[in-house]
Design a protein around this nucleic acid. Structure first.
Lengths: 142, 142
DNA sequence: GCTTGACTTAGAGCACACTCTAACCTCTAC
DNA sequence: GTAGAGGTTAGAGTGTGCTCTAAGTCAAGC
């Protein structure tokens, strides 16, 4: 009942390219995938779940190097040594949280600037007749 | 009263390297900086505020190309044409918001996995005597 | 005058993560 | 049996954003 997918199908399912899938396998992020009699890759649903998790690590900015370490831990101690893996994920978790915080901070500044432009546009429309009160705008903030 | 900073001081103030500062100027993200009689760059506080804003765009993932477009708009129409600049920032804003959303989504999965490892660790400690109820763990989720 | 250290330039080099190429193989349909 | 779609490999190439190098200039202190 285990349905096995071709590399093309996995690419579509995961959003990674076939090139990337082979690349990940080549650099040991993915353990060697089973082959059909003709030598073509046949991905199991377990493989796909692993790839999807890998992808989440990537999308949160984990470098390939670190994913390699994580993948090696899983391969070498599939049934124990959860502690080190958890520690890796927790360290990464902190990095991601910080990343989100920074994005939010910087977004606030961008929002501020959008607001500022909106006011300048409004002023321009009214030919400068209305100057927003209390808005002394430094010339550098254009 | 305009205090002018050296490239080294600006690097310290902004967190960018002196190399990066020169690189940004070379590719027109920063307009040509004033020079001392000896040809050394002298940054004004206006320059620094611009660089800081640039950096926020970078840190939110805006590509250099796009920052170049934005910088060109500011240079070419410093006192009007706020509309296009606002549009650029608003488009970027949406990208950043989506980026944050994705990070949060993926972080949730990582959190789930950390939790899962925590449970596996606890089970291992009790020599498998206690199996968390209702936790049928697929073998792929290790 | 000479050393030291901070600056200048053009251009080369690098790390990262893919992405593509060339040459070859294999299955299916006609 | 041949075309065409899709697979395989090793290895080269690409885009992005820096980062560094080499060779030279300049100002201050000894």
């Amino acid at each position: 009942m285990e349905q096995e997918l071709t590399i093309q199908q996995v690419a579509e399912a995961t959003g990674l390219s076939v090139h990337t899938l082979r690349y990940y396998e080549r650099c040991d992020l993915i353990a060697p995938i089973q082959r059909s009699p003709s030598g073509h890759r046949r991905y199991s649903s377990t493989d796909i779940r692993w790839i999807e998790f890998l992808n989440k690590l990537r999308l949160t900015g984990m470098p390939i190097r670190q994913m390699q370490r994580y993948a090696a831990l899983v391969r070498e101690h599939p049934d124990d040594g959860f502690h080190e893996r958890r520690q890796m994920l927790e360290a990464h978790r902190q990095v991601v949280i910080e990343q989100i915080r920074q994005l939010q901070d910087n977004l606030a500044v961008i929002d501020w600037k959008i607001q500022h432009y909106t006011e300048l546009e409004a002023n321009a429309k009214h030919s400068g007749l209305f100057k927003a009160p209390g808005q002394s705008v430094p010339p550098s903030y254009r």
